[in-house]
């Protein structure tokens, strides 16, 4: 979770972030005055979620505009939220895309957690190295850009962090990186195309 926050904080303008599950802070970089902002935001977002429930709606995202900064809260699942404090200079549309990507990746990590550890053991390939796979990264970013546009670079960076946290970063494990990145593609057709193109990259 710390990796997710660290990557989100690399988005221009993002000041700090927090991941909370069932009231427990899993990771947070809110300190000082920003901690008070976080507490007030959580109270407000809780009230908003209750109000939406009465309308039969689910919360997708809340943005609190504070003038000099904004608080953006995105639910991962019930009682599990990702919160960021971003300066006024932040491109909020880009931040929304990146946050939604992180949420999808967290969900995938949660749903696959037991299998991830098993696969990382069984697919280790000592005959390949980080250098081999990193040579492919610029091409993979290009392919991702075709599908999702300028957000590709940030989405890729997040995806690679997730991948490295759960797998040995080798060409043999590239399929897992492709799975992580595919979560952000719009359609099954796009996902299939992306998988085939990445496979073509490393099989020649």
């Amino acid at each position: 979770m710390r990796t997710v926050l660290r990557d989100l904080e690399s988005v221009s303008g993002v000041r700090c972030g927090c991941i909370v599950r069932d009231g427990e802070v899993l990771a947070s970089t809110f300190i000082g005055d920003s901690a008070a902002t976080l507490a007030a935001s959580r109270e407000l977002v809780g009230a908003i979620a209750e109000g939406l429930e009465l309308l039969g709606r689910e919360l997708d995202e809340v943005l609190l505009d504070l003038g000099e900064a904004s608080v953006v809260v995105v639910p991962v699942e019930e009682g599990f939220t990702l919160t960021l404090l971003a300066g006024a200079e932040t491109n909020l549309d880009l931040l929304r895309v990146v946050m939604q990507s992180s949420v999808r990746q967290i969900r995938m990590m949660l749903s696959r957690a037991p299998q991830v550890s098993a696969s990382s053991v069984s697919t280790k390939q000592p005959d390949t190295s980080d250098e081999d796979v990193e040579r492919l990264f610029p091409k993979i970013i290009e392919l991702l850009t075709v599908s999702i546009g300028p957000a590709a670079r940030v989405v890729f960076k997040h995806g690679v962090s997730m991948w490295k946290a759960s797998h040995t970063p080798t060409v043999g494990n590239l399929v897992s990186l492709v799975e992580i990145l595919s979560v952000d593609l719009a359609s099954d057709e796009d996902r299939l195309w992306f998988c085939q193109e990445v496979e073509r990259l490393h099989t020649g």
């Binding site: 943005l63 505009d65 504070l66 003038g67 608080v71």
Partner: peptide, 23 residues
Amino acid sequence: AALPHARDAAALSLRRIVVRTDR
């Protein structure tokens, strides 16, 4: 819910709330 956090009133100094739903 927002009023106690409105501009210059509290920690948030809230100007605007934007809520996206599943619809």
